[in-house]
Design a protein around this nucleic acid. Structure first.
Lengths: 160, 160
DNA sequence: TGACTCATGTCAGCAGTTTGACACACGTCG
DNA sequence: CGACGTGTGTCAAACTGCTGACATGAGTCA
């Protein structure tokens, strides 16, 4: 048989392995961050904000691959905990530039230690060369799928 | 400064790229499966079942990286739609061996065509060699993190 | 100027998933 | 035999993230 669309064993499919690896990483990060009372999206938000201060909620959402509505809740929570601040009213437009507070930076540093350990554990099986290769291949895969995972998506190019 | 745990830009981190690639894939699969009225977990469940008929709900859950409670709902839905069957009462123990119906196989074949197209699109940027390499590296990463993402997790007991 | 478009913040409702709990059905010991 | 531990199915509550919707501020263009 084997006409065409019968895929091989799932455990050989890149898609499946991608899901598996992501699931394992997510779980490990969750575990590592629990003592700090941070979820993965919260951590990701803080880290992106450290690298790119002043981002708006929508921009953060895109960087972390969630909707801006979800990010809105994350931001409200983190703001209430005093880990970040943003103006009550926009100086220009509607975007509210967000920044870490001292407490936020402190919490983030601890989180980075925990997450760093997880990532090192994950990459322990890879050589530095293999790691760079993996990073490049993953980037290529994401790019091939068109990036821009959420919202918009207005391009559903028919024809062709 | 720069003592130690300050990570580089997120877009160079394998963890971040893993998340990005997974997000893109998930989104693309979701999109491709929507016309068939299947979610990604539902599809994954069917496909695993095709390759390993007779699996129980709990086993399926582990294979698809969700809790057995979530899988329970997925199975109930798919069973109600007549895509799979399982005995009302267990022949042995409590596990209910699940199998695809003819309708399930038909629906799955269509889904595999859609998903196959997505995966091919994703891997278009990679050579066959790079694809195998990527699969191997992802497997190594998952293994290094200890697999077994959900439930159990009874390790790291403090043992007092 | 006004209409149109785009991006943002925010609220409300909904779907999917997880956590927690309970009841069975074995197998293994003591 | 009976206690225990493991694996399983199932229900209920809680949580998380998403879709849908609305209003606002800023550019663009006729």
């Amino acid at each position: 048989m084997s006409h065409a669309p019968v895929p091989g064993p799932v455990d050989e499919s890149v898609g499946y392995l991608l899901k598996k690896a992501h699931s394992a990483l997510r779980s490990a990060m969750d575990h590592a961050l629990r003592p700090l009372d941070l979820t993965v999206p919260q951590y990701a938000c803080l880290e992106v904000l450290r690298q790119r201060p002043g981002l708006s909620g929508s921009e953060l959402a895109r960087a972390v691959f969630v909707t801006r509505q979800s990010m809105h809740l994350v931001l409200k929570g983190l703001e209430r905990r005093g880990l970040l601040t943003r103006p009550a009213v926009a100086a220009y437009g509607k975007a509210l530039p967000t920044e870490l507070t001292a407490a936020g930076r402190k919490q983030l540093a601890a989180a980075n230690r925990a997450v760093g350990a997880v990532e090192r554990k994950m990459l322990a099986a890879l050589t530095p060369t293999a790691e760079r290769r993996l990073a490049r291949d993953l980037t290529a895969c994401a790019a091939a799928l068109g990036d821009v995972p959420s919202e918009d998506e207005a391009e559903d190019r028919v024809e062709r």
